[in-house]
């Protein structure tokens, strides 16, 4: 564990609490992509099956359980109690393409041919693009509630810190994980536009709105 990874994981946790806070405070999930949230649930379930086969640390297991449980809870909230507030008409990104694409990539470039490694690879590829429906929705509506943009920013910052974590681990441990690196770099690049708008607008107290 290093400081980049720890802060990254904590930002990931924070992003989930920010999202739950947004839903609870505004009593609405308007502007939140259910597709992105459902994709994250699929990502966590397919990646963390090693909960049953491997024990790394209490921290590792608790975080995995939290990510699975919280993503299931968010999908539930959007699907049932807050369904009337869900902006389905702007959440129109074709998420099935992302799932099919990640599945094909997982089969073409798996970490190994063990079923858990194929699913792990699939989840890494899927996570890289899972934010796209959310970003697409924000582009379509042209703006987002400030708290929703905080959520996306925390997620993007978490990914950016993972890049620094990998550089650090490469030099200190000789750690290499090409699949995670490439997918992680792609994932971080997807946030580039968002970061720019967030930093120039939201940080100055303005609404997240596209120029």
């Amino acid at each position: 564990m290093n400081i980049f990874r720890l802060v990254a994981d904590l930002l990931h946790l924070a992003s989930i609490f920010i999202l739950l806070l947004k839903i609870q405070q505004t009593k609405s999930c308007a502007g939140v992509s259910l597709k992105t949230q459902a994709l994250y649930f699929v990502v966590f379930v397919t990646r963390y099956l090693d909960l049953f086969t491997h024990f790394y640390s209490v921290y590792n297991s608790l975080m995995k359980l939290f990510f699975i449980a919280s993503s299931a809870y968010i999908v539930y909230l959007m699907w049932k109690p807050y369904r009337p507030t869900y902006s389905a008409s702007t959440d129109t990104f074709r998420a099935e393409f992302l799932i099919v694409g990640a599945a094909l990539l997982g089969l073409a470039f798996p970490d190994s041919w063990h079923i858990l490694d194929i699913l792990w690879s699939f989840s890494i590829y899927l996570e890289a693009v899972a934010i796209l429906p959310q970003l697409f929705q924000m582009t379509r509506t042209g703006e987002a509630e400030t708290i929703t943009s905080h959520y996306v920013f925390a997620l993007g910052a978490y990914r950016a810190l993972y890049l620094m974590n990998w550089i650090y681990r490469y030099y200190t441990e000789g750690y290499m994980d090409v699949i995670a690196w490439v997918a992680g770099a792609v994932q971080t690049i997807l946030y580039a536009d968002f970061f720019y708008i967030y930093l120039t607008r939201v940080m100055r107290g303005r609404l997240f709105s596209l120029p």
Partner: peptide, 10 residues
Amino acid sequence: RARNNVHDEL
């Protein structure tokens, strides 16, 4: 081990 590769990151 059940898997070839160990992934200790979240």
